[in-house]
Amino acid sequence: MPFNPILAFGGLACALFTLGAAGAVGWAPLPDQELLARSELVTLAPGSFAHPLPGEFLRRNHPISAPVVRAMVAAPIEIMKYQVSASDYRRCVMAGACKPADGNGSGNVPVTGVSHIDAEAYAGWLSAETGSAWRLPTDVEWAYAAGERFRGDIEGGEADPDNPAQRWLVQYRTEAALGRQPDPQPRIRGGFGPNSKGVADIAGNVWEWTSTCYVHVTEAAAGAGIASSIDNCGVHVVEGFHRTYMSNFIRDGKSGGCAVGTPPDNLGFRLVRDRLNLVQAAIRWLRLS
């Protein structure tokens, strides 16, 4: 019989696949330290920076640009250098603590097709596995880590009281002018490179969930503080190439967005690790929490 390369390699691939599957069955959970080591962290020193707040802001009944505040980061932030990978997320799925992701990536690519609810579930599982306190970053923390790659909302500017459509048109055209083309295929982690702070893949093609809720804020007259603030924690701030807002259960940004505007290519996340004080650490260590 003549040598048939397709058949031969096909058979080889099959054998490898079987081996892989058999390996997975007998795979003991990694010890905590190993999982910890796999989550490469970047430590950001405390500081302050100018930050446009997320949400909708009204002054005298009209939408305005988000106020830019001086955001303070009082303590060092430990944030994952990369977005959570498909393979790490899969470990949570195998443990029965996470729902399988909708994204079709595997291995060392960011997990995609995950909702805010999924991200929270993963943080809970990882915390239990490692004895550390993992959580989603706040919008401020994310922006601080994003550094020069932070964009924020695509702004329509202050509304013309006589013509609300002006702001809609400015926003629409600003976004269109960015000319960003859809880029749906997640890349190997690190593919979008690190920013100046050493945090990788910020503003690539995976948008990230934060723990910050969507909010309607009405400014007091003459910008003297806030008259009212109504938040909606069924919707969270999502950060990436631009800032957007998604319902907690959305896994595919394309279907979760508004009628107009560029939707996120993918939804994923990265986590921050809280430093615990001695007592908290002891409780965690004893698995009492």
Partner: peptide
């Protein structure tokens, strides 16, 4: 599909009498 339409707003046809508040 989208249309972008420039021009003056007509308050008579539509206006936001009160923005969302508590």
């Amino acid at each position: 599909a989208h249309f972008t339409v420039d021009g003056s707003w007509d308050d008579d046809l539509m206006m936001q009498v009160e923005a969302p508040r508590a």
